[in-house]
């Protein structure tokens, strides 16, 4: 698991997604081929760190390894460049977590591998 996380840590820490050189569309998660125009002229691109909640849910029974966070909010956030990110929403009062709410990205502990394994960090979002 540690190597899998290491390989894409910049995507987790800095929201590095993709930009299409042909039509300028931007994507997160990264793509191999532009979903708008089909071009394979794709380069890494840091995503804007702000956006809006498109839809959200309060998850009561998360995956193993995330129990201590439960219940927690998950949302699909539409970033300012149109890219969509699946993310946890943290540090936000329940009545603020709603469709259309403005959010910004922060870095948090994403997953901790027990007491002796590594700590993995990644993006989460906070309602502004």
């Amino acid at each position: 698991m540690a190597i899998q996380y290491w390989r894409i840590r910049d995507r987790y820490y800095r929201l590095i997604g993709s930009r299409c050189g042909a039509c300028g569309s931007e994507f997160f998660p990264p793509v191999y081929r532009c979903k708008k125009c089909g071009s394979e002229d794709i380069a890494d691109r840091e995503m804007p760190r702000t956006g809006k909640i498109l839809t959200h849910t309060l998850l009561h029974e998360p995956l193993p390894g995330f129990e201590a966070l439960a219940p927690f909010y998950l949302a699909v956030v539409k970033l300012d460049n149109g890219a969509k990110v699946l993310t946890q929403i943290v540090d936000s009062p329940p009545d603020a977590v709603k469709s259309g709410a403005k959010v910004r990205a922060v870095v948090r502990r994403a997953k901790v591998d027990g007491d002796s394994g590594q700590i993995f960090y990644g993006y989460k979002f906070v309602v502004e």
Binding site: Y13, A68, L69, V90, D91, V106, V107, R108, R109, A110, I119, Y121, K124
Partner: peptide, 12 residues
Amino acid sequence: AIDEDTVTMAIE
């Protein structure tokens, strides 16, 4: 918060 530590706060 439960998912914060010195590193996450230092980054912010």
